[in-house]
């Protein structure tokens, strides 16, 4: 093809069985204008070096698997195009602030614990029998949480958060956004179910409003808003007036 060009991709390599620390490896990758960084990595794996490790699944910004640092910024590699980075080089590294498992794959275990801690499911006041049919919501009730429900757990926001980098125990932007998403859902009991996580020293109070999380989110979620709205909720709870002033 005439519109094939070549770009250099520098990938961080780390093999936990043989390496004591990571190094960068260079690959010369031919690409066409329709190729994403993810497709560049797949070219490397298929044609140049089968040992390069990275996560991916859907190729269309839905699954949240392929997040990585591309030239020092957190991006989904499936929706970042090599043509936009030409002439390169393109430096790809695992997401910042996470332990590196192998090459571009990070250890997500800590995040999964945090996700469990915020109870990412609807907790209703009473069991609803199936015979009652679907729980209906008005468009306004859906609007209240819709933005936050778009989170795909890609963890770009954690790579954008220096507070998480400095304190790995911080529950962090995505999990706190999902905490807010369920608290705002009219089918959920709300605040009291997840108050212990929000109120914790590793909860909303670890945030210093850098705001970069909201800039890098590929799905338009605003974690900075979720976290800081819950600082007010947590402060009211602390003063014992949360219930008096209402709100979810």
């Amino acid at each position: 093809m005439t519109d094939t060009r070549t770009i250099r991709i520098e990938a961080l390599r780390f093999n936990p069985e043989t390496d004591s620390e990571p190094r960068l490896q260079r690959y010369e990758v031919p690409f066409t204008p329709d190729m994403s960084v993810l497709q560049g990595l797949q070219y490397i794996k298929d044609h140049l070096d089968g040992s390069l490790t990275f996560r991916w699944s859907c190729r269309m910004a839905v699954c949240g698997s392929c997040g990585m640092m591309i030239n020092g910024r957190p991006h989904l590699s499936c929706e970042t195009f090599l043509r936009d980075l030409y002439p390169g080089p393109v430096r790809v590294e695992p997401l910042d602030h996470f332990p590196v498992q192998r090459d571009l794959a990070i250890d997500q275990a800590g995040f999964l614990d945090k996700l469990a801690a915020i109870k990412p499911y609807i907790v209703s006041a009473k069991e609803r029998p199936l015979s009652e049919g679907p729980s209906r919501q008005t468009p306004a009730q859906l609007d209240a949480y819709y933005q936050y429900s778009q989170c795909i757990n890609c963890l770009l926001c954690y790579a954008a958060c220096p507070q998480f980098g400095l304190n790995p125990d911080f529950i962090g932007p995505a999990a706190l956004s999902l905490l807010h998403r369920y608290n705002l859902d009219s089918r959920d009991i709300g605040w009291s179910v997840r108050a212990d996580a929000a109120n914790a020293d590793v909860g909303v109070w670890e945030c210093t409003v850098v705001g970069y999380c909201s800039e890098v989110c590929p799905k338009g979620v605003d974690p900075m808003h979720a976290v800081n709205e819950n600082k007010v909720n947590s402060a009211l709870d602390y003063l014992g007036v949360k219930r008096l002033l209402g709100g979810r």
Binding site: D196, N199, A200, W205, K231
Partner: peptide, 14 residues
């Protein structure tokens, strides 16, 4: 996960 209540609210309000 161990969750300990933060005393930040009072300082945050100030």
């Amino acid at each position: 996960m161990k969750l300990k209540r933060s005393q930040e609210p009072i300082f945050w309000l100030l």
